[in-house]
Design a protein around this nucleic acid. Structure first.
Lengths: 247, 247
DNA sequence: CGGCGATTTGATAATGGTCAAGTGCCGTGG
DNA sequence: CCACGGCACTTGACCATTATCAAATCGCCG
């Protein structure tokens, strides 16, 4: 059975980072019918205005959700890691008010609303877990808003790095103090409300110069977790994870 | 029966703006056991770090939720109007990651988690409606993030005005093109990520000068809805209301 | 009438944006 | 194997939106 759906490992890892699953619930997730698909980087999965009839499970790779202004500026409001269903909300809200896009090459699994609703009916605790996940999403938005509205570029950036490392750690994507880093500086800017130029300068002058991190095109190493946490005023409580904070 | 709980009128008006209620559901809401209380302006109802065992129904008046930076700057991430339960999420997320505060004098009704969970069990469609409400909340956050990260002060402000008028209209708080306006310029700044001074200048130089609005301490009149909408790039779809847009 | 918070206005400073140009890295094709 | 092309990153110079500091006025409530 399991062999038929190796795709659910990341889903289960993610769910277990925010709730405790029973054996039955785990089994139900493992049997979740889905249509797997490979996608290239920078491809829209659903767009603002769409009325999807299925949700997208991110099996492997990274994705983001964003909105755009009339003059073409983009604001990314969330990044998604393997195991997440970035658009569960489409179950309850018909029309997309934003777009979902791959950041890297991705493996995704499409699950119909019908299947998910059936799952929620049969396993009310899973329904609550999905609700909980959307609520944590909203909590992340709130902290980002605090940064966008009231913090300096360097602090905002440090907070963002702490958040991503903590979330990745929860699903086993961090090795010691190092993790894969799939984001370009342009994407960082679109998430932090900064220009690419300023992202670059902030990384150089505030984070790398202070020895807080080592960041290459594809890898992030946190050299001084306490320093980074302090600069970003990061407190992981809002992620409401079952297991606490990265080291 | 009804006489015992005149407090549920605004709740029902709000619920009906986002879902269609059956008679039974309406009755269940009307009988909702709660402890009513009067609160002064600018009083915290729950604080970041609390682990509340009840939710707060806003019966009359306006409230806001906010976070603060270490150096005391405040970011308001939502305003709440009568009929809303700003902290429903505490049902599923134990620890508050932000604070809830009155903006004006308020009448609130405290409903225990127990009572709300029982209500959700007995009326699954109401549970879904609450979920839906938290999702709309998140949609509002996303649009605010677009403003905070990527729009100019004037556009952000115009969008905010459009949003509030549209939401108030949905629960009958708008008279023609005029509504009560309970927010100070400092509160506006804390919501829009601007200094009070700049809020004032933006109102003067961009919105009033262009004849878009008339704003006094306590009243807002929209003189040019289309102009305001245009400036704010406002499209009410994201509010996912059952009845569309203000006039 | 007095007092205090909210609003308004002026002057100056700073964070971060824009424009421009150059470097480095990596995959592709000859 | 090496040259080419494109994209991401980097750096410099200049500019603009918005913050900060300071002070005056308005308006409401007691």
């Amino acid at each position: 059975m399991e062999a038929l759906h190796p795709h659910t490992h990341s889903l289960i890892a993610k769910m277990e980072s925010i709730v405790t699953l029973s054996g039955e619930e785990r089994a139900a997730l493992q049997r979740l019918p889905m249509q797997a698909q490979e996608l290239r980087a920078d491809q829209d999965i659903v767009r603002e205005g769409d009325r999807p009839t299925r949700c997208c499970l991110l099996i492997e790779g990274f994705a983001c959700r964003y909105n755009m202004t009339a003059d073409g500026k983009r604001q990314i409001h969330s990044f998604h890691i393997p195991g997440e269903i970035p658009d569960v909300q489409s179950l309850h809200i018909g029309t997309m008010d934003h777009s979902l896009q791959t950041v890297t090459r991705c493996t995704v699994g499409f699950v119909t609303h019908e299947v998910l609703e059936d799952l929620c009916d049969r396993c009310p605790r899973l329904a609550r877990a999905f609700w909980r996940e959307t609520l944590i999403d909203a909590a992340i938005f709130r902290k980002w808003m605090l940064g966008l509205g009231r913090k300096q570029a360097s602090s905002r950036m440090a907070h963002f790095l702490c958040e991503m490392v903590t979330r990745m750690k929860a699903v086993g994507l961090v090795e010691g103090t190092t993790c894969a880093w799939p984001f370009t500086q342009t994407e960082l800017g679109d998430a932090l409300g900064l220009s690419t130029v300023h992202v670059n300068r902030t990384l150089q002058d505030e984070l790398r110069a202070a020895g807080l991190i080592t960041l290459t095109k594809s890898t992030l190493t946190v050299n001084d977790w306490e320093g980074l946490k302090g600069l970003g005023e990061f407190d992981p409580t809002y992620l409401h994870q079952v297991f606490r904070e990265a080291a």
